[in-house]
Amino acid sequence: MMKNLKTVLGIGVVAAAAFFIVAADHIDAPAVQGGNSDITDFYAFQGENTSNLVFATNLQGLLSPATTGSAMFDENVLIEINIDNTGDNVEDLVIQAIPRDGKMYFFGPIAPSQTGLNSTIETSSTVGGVVDITAYGSSANIATNGGMSFFAGPRDDPFFFDFAQYSEIIAGNESSFNMPGADTFAGSNVLSIVVEVPKSMIGGSGSINTWVESKRK
């Protein structure tokens, strides 16, 4: 039984090899891995105020405490949260976040002037806000505007996974996970952008499809 499984898993090495060095979306592809546009994780959940939804985007994973202080958001990298509320997987609304001189500027939710792979910054948006980027070691700067809340800065990587053992399994060196497992992401940080928005601004009720993009000028 296990021998068969290993054989099958061996065949699967090509498909799963990338799992060896990556996790949720950390370092997921050659063009972005290790760079400042590399998205590590994306979360969307109901806020403490249940009338709100929270979007959390994490970038630049696997930052050690020694390297976190020098990690920076790139002023040429736009983070765009896409919201489809008509079920066609095309964005009807975007929330854009772009850093300038120590501040993170937020535009939207707003209908984008164009959908797809290229974006311009929706500076005509009447909703959004700006927050001072929190420095490593400082308490969180939080800004609010028009019912929205904003944060940008380093945080603990909320992702957890024993991918070291997974890689051993895929490599054929181990046949199962350990009990307990070991969180490979323990003690590491990410750069986070968190925005909380009234549900009424993104469709109100029902369900949405959402994803996040990084785009470079």
Binding site: D28, A31, V32, D41, N118, I121, W211, K217
Partner: peptide
Amino acid sequence: YAQEDQMG
């Protein structure tokens, strides 16, 4: 701004 990474 041209796309580099995305995630759902």
